[in-house]
Nucleic acid binder design. Sequence first.
DNA 1: TTTAGCACTCATCGGCTTAGAGTGCTAACA
DNA 2: TGTTAGCACTCTAAGCCGATGAGTGCTAAA
Lengths: 344, 344
Amino acid sequence: MQLDDRKAQVLQAVIDDFIFTAEPVGSRTIAKKYDLGISSATIRNEMSDLEEMGYLDQLHTSSGRIPSDKAYRLYVDKLMENRTLKTHEAQDFKGVYETQLSQVGQVIYHTAKILSEITKYTSMVIAPQLNSTVIKHIQLVHVDRQLALLVISTSSGLLKDTLIAIPEGIDSDYLHRISNILNELYSGKTFDEIDVDDLKEVRSEIIRNGNIFDALIGALTENLTRSDQKKVYLEGTTKIFNFPEYQDLIRAKTFLSLLEEKDLLYAMLTSAEADGVTVSIGKENPFEELRDCSIVSATYKIGDRVLGSIGIIGPTRMEYSRTMSTMDYMAKALSQYLTSLYGK
Amino acid sequence: MQLDDRKAQVLQAVIDDFIFTAEPVGSRTIAKKYDLGISSATIRNEMSDLEEMGYLDQLHTSSGRIPSDKAYRLYVDKLMENRTLKTHEAQDFKGVYETQLSQVGQVIYHTAKILSEITKYTSMVIAPQLNSTVIKHIQLVHVDRQLALLVISTSSGLLKDTLIAIPEGIDSDYLHRISNILNELYSGKTFDEIDVDDLKEVRSEIIRNGNIFDALIGALTENLTRSDQKKVYLEGTTKIFNFPEYQDLIRAKTFLSLLEEKDLLYAMLTSAEADGVTVSIGKENPFEELRDCSIVSATYKIGDRVLGSIGIIGPTRMEYSRTMSTMDYMAKALSQYLTSLYGK
DNA sequence: TTTAGCACTCATCGGCTTAGAGTGCTAACA
DNA sequence: TGTTAGCACTCTAAGCCGATGAGTGCTAAA
């Protein structure tokens, strides 16, 4: 069977209505609300065909129909009107990054907050990933008699630092020498390329004065595998209670438990490396647990290097058009802001 | 009326049973399960008295009774057996801080996680508060041509740093001079005592080379009012679904929305400045929103200075004894660990 | 003072009925 | 041949009812 023009119109009407009402849609509703110029009986026939084609599902014989994941996919790719932000919305976004936020963490947190407020869905944001970022300079700074700060600056302008314990009696000159060794070994490489074992080869040069070596190895390893890098900033987790399809304790609980699986969310957000806005609908999702959710995500950059992702998660019955245009705008705004702060 | 020995026994039985079953407790249940040597009819009379005294509530005429907040308070203060950790539990805790965690954030996160797992309630932890900590040393470090790191080290051993933008062409000597000025002004003071305006008075000495002044003011102000300081680490938020009294969508939603009010939780955790374990039961709570929850919290220290709090939040029907002993243990373990890391 | 006995209350649960939304099919119509 | 009106049929949701049982308060006897 072919999806002719009229079928597409009916399908779009069903999807639009279902997104709006969250109730299974009947033929009479379509006939009344949408001016397609055909009777409910004809629509009934078309809907029966659409069901056969896999675009619509029926919960039970005497209920209306709801769109399948396949229908939403068609909707997102072809049917829906590609909305751009309305002027008053664009206005709202204007001031998003006007408050001074100098720490990366703050920018990320703020972004998550705003994103959730605007979209009305649960937002997820990950901080810039440094894995493929080039190390520009490494520096060991004396802070206290027994403490030094290991500072790694990167080409994207972002900085990473770790406090390390050092044996008493180490002077700045000595730290400087170690810094030079570290720079020779690692600067110009990316975080992913760092091999801690390289350090072991020059061990003798470093060990002169106690066990600073172990502290260094520790600090470096930690900077590479640091778990807070994998952190996902979530906001608006309780937004889910606003949706009728989650007015069910078990579903709500399942969803919220899902959000506690940070590894999964992280994997989800980093999987879509493509530029621009990505949509993953229901069963399209790589993870079983997310099969009745949709995820809209986008990457952000500093300069022209993709460094992280932002996204929202909600029911498959999602306002795709509005959400996607918002996501696009936010990702660009964030990129621009981060670049202005850190980009060269 | 007087709360004699037998009434207290009956009350304790009712509370113990209700904490265990979450069902209103009837006189027959008490007579059968607890060996008080009196019949259900006598218990019935005692329970009627206890209700009159405000220790028990009845949902409707023909239901059993449930303990009031007043009853829980009596229970916590007098009735319950003051449990110490059982040997196998103490064993479980032994390894809590054995994995290497060098960043404060990591320690806090890990603590929240563990606390929630052990208690089965939602845990809340706040990072060390530096407000009343004495600044030991301030240092400006060149990181890049246009970037410097402002590092503030404190007497508790904790460190705070912020990246600031500097005009090109500033040399290390100059940064060193500014560092000296900052130290003269601020070292020995607490964060709370810092007055950014002091900096303005020595403005002319600093302004030699462009606008590093503004960046400094900004960075200092931010370090003082930094919102991520006020951050509350939450773990196990979905634990609430395990309790029968929250098998109700509206209550669950209310609870979870409450957890999103970080300011409230923060205020709650910092309000109990007393040393040791604090319990706040239902309406005792300073905040209206928390009136059907109980909060068990404790402070932790570095050295002998109180720096932050840990706590859990759950239904008033809480296993007070177990939770309080766990909280006591964890607060001490955390203090000990942080002191070993940062304390002098 | 305690306790056995009993009448009374009230929430909960299963079964039953009804209303209504929606379908599929048939037959008439353009 | 495609479209539409009409109608019988299906199935859920909501409301009503009575039975059940847990629990109480009261009374009278021990």
